[in-house]
């Protein structure tokens, strides 16, 4: 039972993390190759505070705050550079983050932070907390999608210049997307730190940023349910791969390539096509 709880908690954290990137990349169309940096900022903030005796739930607020603060800075950068330039800048952010963490003794340097206190309400409690966080963030994201901001995001993702021409205040909405997205990643990071109870610079690198981007893209960029489904699947997949451990990354890489090659609109597009075909034959 304990094993299933761990897998489910990991799944919930992955879903939250992927949903948070979906706000930036999916809704607002701003590619980020460095989203793991914000997971890391949340994890480090929460880990340090809870080692100092602050209760886990209370650390959520500063973890989200710190991540969102840095996210805002990156958001300001996104006002300056676009498309591929932005992709590489965000990739720079994750390298900068791990590079700085590696050299700071307060943050544990290369070794990382171990012995993060177990959550006071136990493993099942952590799972419930994670699920509640996912639910809250999900409702918030759905609310955004249906609001005026959701339309503004869509138009920016579609064509930034036209959006500006229509009188949409592009910088404001971009910053809002980064704020919401990185705060979500910070929350996921706080949960992650207390789930694994050990964090180091290697847990928040480029590969992790790519994996979460893969979840969003395989789910279908911008689709909330598709992203939830693919995050759940992809986070559970490595557990099955344990049997063929030697080929784990090989399979993962080929899966990424295969998904892009044969179903570039993701699970969401796949399901939609399936339903349309089924509807057509009827």
């Amino acid at each position: 039972m304990a094993y299933e709880i761990v897998v489910l908690t990991n799944m919930a954290i992955s879903i939250l993390f992927a949903l948070s990137l979906n706000v930036i990349t999916g809704f607002c169309g701003q590619v980020s190759l460095g989203h793991a940096a914000f997971l890391g900022i949340g994890a480090y903030t929460s880990a340090i505070l809870s080692k100092a005796g602050v209760p886990l739930v209370v650390t959520f607020i500063p973890a989200m705050g710190m991540a969102a603060l840095v996210g805002l800075v990156v958001g300001v950068a996104s006002l300056r550079v676009r498309h591929d330039f932005l992709a590489i800048t965000t990739m720079g952010v994750v390298f900068l983050f791990t590079g700085i963490v590696r050299k700071q003794d307060i943050l544990g340097g290369e070794i990382g932070i171990a012995g993060i206190p177990a959550p006071e309400f136990g493993r099942i409690g952590l799972l419930v907390t994670a699920l509640l966080c996912v639910l809250a963030y999900l409702l918030f994201v759905i609310r955004i999608r249906k609001s005026w901001a959701g339309f503004a995001f869509d138009s920016i993702a579609e064509d930034e210049d036209t959006a500006r021409l229509l009188g949409i205040h592009v910088p404001r909405f971009k910053l809002f997307a980064f704020l919401v997205g990185t705060a979500g990643a910070g929350l996921a990071g706080a949960l992650y730190a207390h789930q694994i109870r050990f964090i180091g610079p290697d847990s928040f690198g480029f590969v992790e940023s790519i994996s979460v981007l893969a979840m969003v893209i395989i789910g279908g960029i911008g689709s909330i349910w598709g992203v939830i489904l693919s995050a759940a699947l992809l986070s559970a997949l490595p557990q099955f791969f344990q049997i063929i451990d030697d080929f784990k990354l090989l399979v993962y890489g080929l899966l990424l390539f295969g998904a892009m090659r044969f179903a570039p609109d993701g699970i969401d597009g796949l399901l939609k096509r399936l339903f349309r075909r089924a509807g057509g034959t009827r």
Binding site: I210, I217, F257
Partner: peptide
Amino acid sequence: LIASIGVFIA
């Protein structure tokens, strides 16, 4: 880009 990263990892 993602396809390329996939091939690189593999």
